[in-house]
Simulated scan of single mutants.
Amino acid sequence: MSSEAVRIPFDGRQIEIEYQWLRPERVRRPLAVFLHEGLGSVSMWRDFPRKLCEAGDFRGLVFSRYGYGGSTPRPHDEKWGVDFMHRQAREALPALFAALDIGPGRRHGKPWLLGHSDGGSIALIHAASFPDAVDGVTVLAPHIVVEDLSVRSIAVTRETYLTTDLRARLARHHHDVDSAFWGWNDIWLDPAFRAFDLRPLLDNLRCPVLAVQGEEDEYGTMAQIEGIHRYAPQTVLLKLARCGHSPHRDQAGALTAATVAFINTHTSILK
């Protein structure tokens, strides 16, 4: 399926965001919006969004954030701050939803956010900042604080990018692979990023939350999703065995079944 592009205002200028609709004709079914990981894009999701939407009879929206995929690349001299995920959640995502007519009282209605890794953190920030704007959230391996394990693994990824074919493999999914990689890697390895902490926001979550973590995740521990539950007790935890940082690849069947059941239980849009 080919991607489209929409222009939105961000950081005082117009940028292009790559996106794809999935099954848009299912107007009476929930809309799942997929927010990718720190090195992700529309194409990096592969066929998981389509299969999930087919399994749940959902509509879907997949998009590449600023700096990723086919969206406007980050200028190489632009350094992201500690608040880069907050800005995506509070500025870029609302602008995208406005451009695509998503949200309460709009054509496509309230979305259900499904975010992976950094995308999961962005989903949590958005839902906590705009409690009435979403139906619910599913987060896969989200980050609510910076753990030593995360920093160590991201430092290893940096060396892998410099010394193996990782750059070439990622280049298949990004128009400017160095923009995508260094934007993410530089801020995560900046000592200032240790201040990143979503815990003060989490008790503002009002929607249903499904939080998923793999037992073998090399980028985060169970403390991440357990922390969400501590501040937002409505959160349902799903801990997956034989699963690393990408539950949608390592345990796609279990994740799909759990997500479909959770969305169908809590959605405000009826069949």
Rank of each mutant, 00 (worst) to 15 (best):
D11L: 15
A171G: 08
K239A: 10
Y231G: 13
F97C: 03
G60N: 09
P191W: 03
Y66Q: 11
Y231S: 14
A155Q: 14
A168R: 15
I228D: 02
S41E: 03
Q213V: 00
S41G: 07
C243Q: 03
R74F: 11
D11Y: 12
I144S: 10
A133D: 04
R29D: 06
G119V: 01
G120Y: 07
R74P: 10
F34Y: 02
C207M: 04
E91H: 14
I125K: 12
G109W: 03
L52W: 05
V260H: 07
R90K: 13
R169G: 07
E37K: 11
L240F: 03
A123W: 03
R172N: 14
L35D: 04
D186W: 06
I125V: 02
Y231M: 14
H248W: 05
R28C: 12
Y231D: 12
A98N: 09
R199I: 00
S64C: 03
D47I: 05
L166C: 07
V33Y: 01
D118N: 14
P30N: 05
R26I: 03
H36D: 03
T160E: 14
G67Y: 00
D165H: 10
H108G: 15
I225G: 00
L149D: 00
G105A: 06
W21P: 07
T138W: 15
L100G: 07
D101Q: 14
L205T: 08
M222P: 12
V6C: 13
Q251T: 02
I225F: 02
G70Y: 06
T72M: 06
V146G: 09
G120R: 12
D83F: 09
L22W: 07
P111Y: 07
R13V: 10
N185C: 12
L52V: 04
L270C: 13
A98G: 08
A258F: 00
V177K: 06
W184G: 01
P208S: 06
G56P: 01
A241P: 13
A192Y: 09
E18V: 10
N204G: 11
L35T: 08
H248S: 06
E216L: 09
P131R: 10
G227Q: 00
D190R: 11
G136K: 12
D118I: 03
W184I: 00
L162N: 09
R152H: 08
T265P: 11
G60T: 00
R230H: 12
S3N: 13
L189P: 09
T259M: 09
P75K: 11
R23I: 15
H143N: 09
L35K: 10
G81C: 11
V156F: 15
L124N: 09
C207Q: 08
H174A: 05
S153P: 10
G103E: 02
A32G: 07
D118M: 11
S2I: 12
L240P: 02
A155K: 15
Q251K: 12
S268H: 15
Q14N: 13
A180K: 09
R74Q: 14
A89V: 03
P30T: 00
